[in-house]
Amino acid sequence: MADATTAAVTGGDATAPGGHRSGTAFWAALASPGSLLLVALFVVPAYAILAVAFGGIDPILRTTVPAWNPLDWDLERFGDVVSRVFGGDLTRVFLRTGIFAGLALVGCFVIGYPVAYYVARKAGRNRGLLLGLLVLPFWISYLMRMLAWVNLLQTDGFINRILGWLHLGSGNRNWLDGDWPTVVFGLVYGYIPFFILPLYAALERLDGRLIEASRDLGASSASTFLRVTLPLSIPGLMAASVIILLPMCGDYYTNTYLTGGSPRTEMVGNQIEFFLRGSSQPQAGASLVIILMAFLTIAMAYYLASVARSQRESAS
């Protein structure tokens, strides 16, 4: 995630500052404590998940007994979960999660790109103010914002009242009835600031001379956008997408709060929560985490490959 953000902010240019060997060593040394911390905060928890997934259960308390030694790993339960995910009763939950996250990503793009573009390229003196407004939602916890939407979306909530005043629909629609659009909307609302900010950083660094050159050569505004601006913002788009896609796929409270716990919109995160927190088989929950990570690693690998390709093209 940190790499993704850095890449976005630098527009995909990951070249270390400095230039001399001694300078490189200095910056590497400076970055090492933070890097070590990041590694520790990723590697250790990731290994703990493996140890839980392939570990055992205390026969009395039924709490997890992690298997820290790989030689002690028991793969049977993991295999059982894999069979449930691929062609079993959990297939739908994975597909549903992927579809919800994909739709929310599209929603974030449609709403977020124009906002990021405007703030980065057109806002002028108001840029600071607009950036502040974009950051404003972070001041309130995600959970609180979701709970606020529960009030707004309930049958006698403000949304229905406004729709009623505008004579749009019956005015008594139950938005919290376990429908997928509500969940997708919640995901878009919850994660869009995380999408806009890295995208803004990429667009703000975009070389304006290239756009001017395009216009000077006779391209229309639309053509310039489609053939210059958009392609150049792809690294930023990729970074923004990865940043929101990863947490969205593990999200469980958006669905929980906005549908009242409907099985029709259950996501992988809900299953992980059940097995890890409320069951006597935390290995199943940890196994689901591993499978989800495997899927997301594919997305991450694609992103990294795209960034590398972009860097090669820039260098050539």
Binding site: R62, D89, R96, P263, Q271, F274, S279
Partner: peptide, 17 residues
């Protein structure tokens, strides 16, 4: 343990929709 896990798994399949 075995029966409990069967109950949990059955519940998980239901809530998965």
């Amino acid at each position: 343990m075995e029966t409990n896990q069967l109950w949990e798994r059955t519940w998980s399949a239901f809530t998965a929709g």
